[in-house]
Design a protein around this nucleic acid. Structure first.
Length: 569
RNA sequence: GGUGGGAUAGCUCAGCUGGUUAGAGCGCAGGACUCAUAAUCCUGAGGUCCCCGGUUCAAUUCCGGGUCCCACUACCA
């Protein structure tokens, strides 16, 4: 049994995430985790909210809450929504946890012990009225290059030029609008990534062969340009306090570690939270000197996160000099777009995760977002495509198949798996289909090709409908109940198989099918036997029921309404 | 600007190292069936594989140039 550690990029605490965040990391990570569990592997699936940083502080102020209250509340909201989407995290942690604080401080100590940390003075914009240093993006002013008056400190939206906030003319705080800002010197800790250039490149060389091109090209781009030393502290109060060997670090009493330093460490922190809550052993998953040497670590994220996971986080782990588990396989996604544009809260463009669950059950979204995952390039979400996909794939192909065969079995065979009849040419045909398609399905999942896995799943469901057309049990019934019985028995077994293969993507519907057919948990795995035995797996004579209609079709009136409420078209 | 990716049927996309009639799903047209959520199954129409050159016996597939999209560009997370 293999051991597989799976992490999804951490959703930021700053409000409910939209469908793109779901589609680009949490959902595919969940589908993969479910698949691996069904293959019988030992899986640990970890996620958490990423809670530190300026946006969290500002959002708390806006909400009229302390940042602690705000984060707790938002964490609970995100946890509830994750549960609603049936994301099967073994643990959904918080980067503000005590476990993460201890780990982050320990990593900083180890890095400093290794001579990889240095104090440097930098010049930053301080807002007197806000009483805080402002991140580049939160300073605005006139662009020194093009004269655009609302240029941000990091980049000018007018001319696109990258800027240094200290160069802005007439700078002001984007937080309060105050113009009482000044440049102040401030001390920060820098992680000397430049000294780790060769070690990181060697490590990337070792792994990149197994990474998708999108991933390795981003990693090499950073390496080729030369790794820069990176400031890992910030002038904030909300975060992991800067320390040295367990004590506040002199001169850094009002500073915390930068959120990008502590956030990936929370993958480990959340595992420790899991261990503390469940009695599990977290080091067995993360320390190669304590049992993790045979773990396969798989990360899921949007492409904007790739550099941090291929370079920055590995720099932290490698630089510590300790035997930490590093990523083996990395799956990066492009963006899900809203009709080709960006999701936007302020402009009411796009559906967010909480609103989605109010419209329809999780399976509907899970199916569409997996079958249309933004794998090769950005992929658009449109109501038309969503409606088509759900109605055709789920309601017509799968739902109707299960409904037609179970109802027929109820009306003609007393709701039991028929006893009699021997397989013939039609059964040989579907066996041939399964013999080819089931291995292909598993191969697509192993390769983390989610669109292809969904397409193959659908193709198998569709083959079931074709089988029934060939076998025609309702026609044969008129002349030979025994001949009809073979078709019904095979059809019921196909329905059970369809429920099994549906589990990673649409777990609720799969459960409904499998329980209606009385399939016990041990018979639901992806370790398929030969096709013939798959088609005679349900005990003959056992009672089955017709599950309630699995998927209601999405009506035009609904999409018309949603277009108005959420934008689109 | 730099780097990377993309441009294939009406729509969304597959097409490993070049080779007979370029594929899938949806949509559309026709037919079959009637167990089923007016579902299903079959058949069909429809493409100068972005443009211009080049290499080759042969290019959607390789090379060069062009046009158009998109992403990333480290102190935003």
């Amino acid at each position: 049994m293999a051991r597989i550690l799976i992490t999804s990029a951490l959703p930021y605490i700053n409000g409910v995430k939209h469908l793109g965040n779901l589609a680009g990391s949490m959902l595919p990570a969940d589908v993969f985790a479910r698949f691996q569990r069904l293959m019988g592997e030992e899986v640990l699936f970890i996620c958490a909210t990423d809670e530190h940083g300026t946006p969290a502080e500002l959002a708390a102020v806006e909400a009229g809450q302390s940042v602690e209250e705000y984060c707790l509340e938002q964490h609970e909201i995100q946890a509830r929504i994750a549960k609603g989407f049936q994301l099967s995290f073994d643990w959904f942690g918080r980067s503000s946890s005590q476990a993460n604080r201890e780990l982050t401080q320990a990593f900083a100590d180890r890095l400093e012990d290794a001579g990889l940390i240095e104090e440097r003075t930098s010049r930053q914009v301080y807002s007197i009225d806000d009483g805080r240093f402002l991140p580049d993006r939160y300073v605005e002013g006139t662009c020194p290059s093009c004269g655009y008056e609302k240029a941000r400190g990091d980049q000018c939206d007018g001319c696109g030029r990258l800027l240094d906030p200290v160069d802005l003319i007439n700078p002001y705080s984007a937080v309060s609008g105050s113009r009482r800002v000044e440049i102040r010197d401030t001390q920060h800790l820098f992680l000397l990534q430049s000294r780790m250039q060769d070690r990181i490149r060697a490590w990337v060389d070792e792994r990149a062969g197994a990474w998708p091109q999108l991933t390795s090209s981003i990693a090499y781009k950073w390496l080729d340009e030369g790794l820069q030393d990176r400031s890992i502290t910030r002038d904030l109060s909300w975060g992991v306090p800067v320390s040295r060997n367990g004590h506040p670090r002199p001169g850094f009493e009002t500073k915390v570690y930068y959120v990008w330093f502590d956030a990936p460490i929370e993958y480990i922190g959340a595992t420790r939270e899991w261990a503390e809550a469940t009695g599990g052993n977290w080091e067995r998953w993360w320390r190669t000197d304590k049992g993790a040497e045979d773990v396969t670590y798989v990360e899921f994220m949007g492409k904007d996160n790739v550099a941090f996971h291929t370079v920055s986080f590995p720099a932290t782990l490698l630089g510590s000099g300790e035997p930490w588990k590093l990523v083996d396989r990395l799956k990066a996604f492009n963006w899900l777009t809203w009709y080709g544009g960006k999701f936007s809260t302020s402009q009411k463009r796009g559906v967010f995760m909480d609103a989605a669950l109010e419209l329809l059950p999780a399976d509907y979204w899970r199916w569409f977002l997996t079958a249309n995952a933004p794998e090769g390039s950005d992929a658009p979400f449109t109501w038309e495509a969503f409606q088509n996909s759900v109605n055709s794939d789920l309601a017509n192909v799968l739902g109707n198949f299960v409904n037609r065969i179970t109802r027929y079995a109820q009306s003609k065979f007393d709701g039991r798996v028929p006893l009699e009849g021997e397989p013939g040419a039609d059964e040989a045909w579907i066996e041939g289909e399964l013999a080819q398609r089931l291995p292909a399905l598993i191969a697509h999942y192993q390769a983390m090709d989610f669109r292809k896995a969904a397409a193959e799943t659908r193709a198998i469901w569709a083959a079931g409908n074709e089988y029934l057309t060939r076998a025609e049990p309702w026609v044969k019934y008129k002349t030979s109940v025994e001949a009809s019985a073979v078709g019904v028995r095979t059809g019921l077994n196909l329905a059970a198989l369809f429920g099994v293969i549906a589990q990673p993507i649409i777990p609720a519907a799969a459960e409904s099918i499998l329980s209606a057919l009385g399939v016990p948990p041990e018979a639901r795995s992806f370790r398929f036997g030969d096709p013939r035995s798959c088609l005679d797996a349900l005990p003959r004579g056992s009672a089955i029921t017709a599950p309630p209609v699995l998927f209601a079709k999405i009506e035009d009136t609904q999409t018309a309404d949603w277009r108005v409420r959420f934008g689109g078209g």
